[in-house]
Design a binder for these strands. Structure first.
Lengths: 102, 102
DNA sequence: ACAGGCAGTCAACTTTTTCTGACTAATTGA
DNA sequence: TCAATTAGTCAGAAAAAGTTGACTGCCTGT
């Protein structure tokens, strides 16, 4: 996605919009909104999504600080993705989008 | 963009998100938010944007009823794009996105 | 020891999106 | 009459995003 500099094109909303765009990000966000999500769970949940797509969506959302990756040191040792503070701040906006769309 | 059926993938916000996604749509929306916009004005304003990109963004946003195309019967006869009712209902969400991003 | 789940990565291919440049067609001002 | 402006369209190329399938490496249960 080649982010970072990008000149921002004087449209601040564009950045957030991009961060939630893409074929699977809204669904990942929506899933993470309810409870922490895991890679293979998403793969099963989002029918038609490839490992690649999910991996790069998660990576981008992590880089943009929408979600946080955590290694859980429990019996079977797994990884969880949860909404970051910034991610949680987007929830009300996401809800409003759902209301308008519905 | 192949819209219409699409199964909605049980994520209602996705639709709105898509309608405002793309390289130039957020900026077009932002511009139309202030005052009616015109094709060639956008072409000058959005540096780097091609005619094609602007034309298809406008067409899609019109099809999705975010903006409305009007032929203005004045001296030089031109075309204006303004936010539709639905478009205006998105304004507060857009503003919130700007606030979070800024 | 082996199978299966988890969490990925990589290369090759396809699809979608965007850009470039040429072209159309009506109107207007010099 | 000629050039410019407005509002596009079209084909082809390039870039970005997504999919497929193979492969890795760790851990756990049998």
């Amino acid at each position: 996605m080649e982010n970072g500099s990008e000149a921002q094109s004087q449209c601040p909303a564009e950045s957030l919009l991009k961060q939630l765009s893409g074929k699977w990000k809204p669904q990942i966000f929506r899933s993470a909104l309810k409870q922490p999500v895991r890679f293979n769970a998403l793969l099963r949940e989002l029918e038609g999504a490839s490992k690649q797509a999910i991996a790069s969506a998660l990576k981008e959302m992590e880089e943009q600080d929408l979600i946080r990756k955590t290694i859980i040191n429990e019996k079977p040792l797994h990884i969880e993705y949860t909404l970051s503070e910034k991610g949680r701040s987007v929830i009300p906006i996401f809800k409003q989008l759902e209301n308008l769309a519905g």
